[in-house]
Nucleic acid binder design. Sequence first.
DNA 1: CTGTTAGCGCATTCAA
DNA 2: TTGAATGCGCTAACAG
Lengths: 324, 324
Amino acid sequence: MATVSRVVNGNPNVKPLTRKKVLETIRRMGYRPNAVARGLASKRTTTVGVVIPDISYAFFAELARGIEDIANMYHYNIILCNSDLKKDKELQLIEALFEKQVDGLLFLGGKVTDEHREIFSGSDVPVVLAATRDDKENRPYVTIDQVQAAKEATGVLIREGHQRIGLLGGPLTDPIIGYPRYLGYKEALLESGLPFEEKWIRMGNYRYDSGLKAAKELLETEEGPTAIFAVNDEMAAGAIHAAQDLGKRVPEEISVIGFDNIPLATQVRPLLSTVAVPMYDIGAVAMRLLTKYMNDEPIENNQVVLEYRLELRDSTRLQGEPAH
Amino acid sequence: MATVSRVVNGNPNVKPLTRKKVLETIRRMGYRPNAVARGLASKRTTTVGVVIPDISYAFFAELARGIEDIANMYHYNIILCNSDLKKDKELQLIEALFEKQVDGLLFLGGKVTDEHREIFSGSDVPVVLAATRDDKENRPYVTIDQVQAAKEATGVLIREGHQRIGLLGGPLTDPIIGYPRYLGYKEALLESGLPFEEKWIRMGNYRYDSGLKAAKELLETEEGPTAIFAVNDEMAAGAIHAAQDLGKRVPEEISVIGFDNIPLATQVRPLLSTVAVPMYDIGAVAMRLLTKYMNDEPIENNQVVLEYRLELRDSTRLQGEPAH
DNA sequence: CTGTTAGCGCATTCAA
DNA sequence: TTGAATGCGCTAACAG
């Protein structure tokens, strides 16, 4: 019995001939190791929990792919849970994941509250944040500099000479996307001495339809913006179509820049200029970092800020890529 | 100890006062049940395995959302695995999932081979197929009638009066999408007495870029098609843009119809006419069916064919919805 | 209604 | 290099 355990787990202390015989017998009997029993005995389940806002968003789907690929590479499985960004659901899911004895947890894109911190620190399971961060406590994360990126995106419109730049934002209560990207927009305007006007700001829910609708409102007003920064690509695509529906040409009359660089960005005409966020990499790097924690590998940097890139295509007029 | 187990599992055979005391103590101690131990003892893990081609495809992401929602509703967790439609990877994943003692398995959108059948029947874990089927063995599935739907989509173009109808297909070796949708296209043409020409057929990989490229080739040829049926929306969107890039107006000069009705269909101009596939429902119904198997509930129908719907928007000229 | 007992299928000592 | 014994934390009879 112990010997079988040894060969199944690749323990070298088995005579080659014995190993061969065991393997043969395993094959013949169709023996399948019970990972649950193994998990109970070894206290390792080789599965990690992933709490993600909504897998049906292109952004998170791509991130999840990065996570799963790396997990698979290190022989982990992932238990995937949609949180819809609801705190109570998040908490309940994390609890359930801990009960299932996951070896690690990836928490994506939600706000980290005291309740999160309490449940996280009540366990010795490593937790890595992805596409979010905890600015109060020191917890490992992988993300990008949202404020700076939003600032640069807005900067593109400014350098094109626009004086009236609108914002298609997300809820300011969203500390992960909505607020920082709003902040970047605001800072860019203020630093350039351009007017920052509430009336050129509309909040959406990150979906195409909300972008379409909000952009229409913006563009229909007197003295409306001549350029729009949307905090994600879906809304930006909506803005392009809103402009077109109103008979305005993009980018000749209206410039639009988005954020994320989801596939949709190259599936609209004109091609959408945007901030290319390394979605897959955020997931992959976060998962890799988590494996280091789970296997007690040395960790040089547990708070990684990935690079983004301005991807200027045809919905803006500026050419080339500015340094940043 | 047994009493604690009873209150944790909601067993009614506990005196209310005792229950209260146990609950109180649990809270005070911060006791967290170990689901792995429970799984070993009870032989139920309340987790199901999901093998899916690629979660970063909008189609499967939406399906996965349906699965997870219903799983969550019935207090199951899902272990999500991307197979990339590779048989060996699928097999290996299924094996790993069985080792982890999943209570059930959802197998999505891959071809079911003899090797699949062997591994499936070598276990008593219930398996439900979603967005695919096994036409050789009698296994539960949830899907739509691909051939008929493709036939109707093609029929829309035929009724518009087109004589030269092109196909943007998938690999004919793909028995789930590529082949049946090709078949529907072919049957529709033949039944209408229209020419079925190889030269009007291009195979893509379901991605936007391949649709764009293939459609360009098709539309640039002499005597090219005046209408295109793409077997999925991404390629259809590519076709719309290919036409536009060539200076042809959609739908005035070229009609395009897609398949799936992913969000992209309403995020291009003109809005894409397509076959609305109930992606979320396929996932949800499949998961619900699986819960019935896992809980030994009576099952009236274990091979469900869901309804699709023609969603005629602006990339075709036909109005309204034909009966089917 | 509650406590006692015996596994669940493994990994992990410890001896041999 | 191998086998025997122990226990991981729980559920499921069973007895009381």
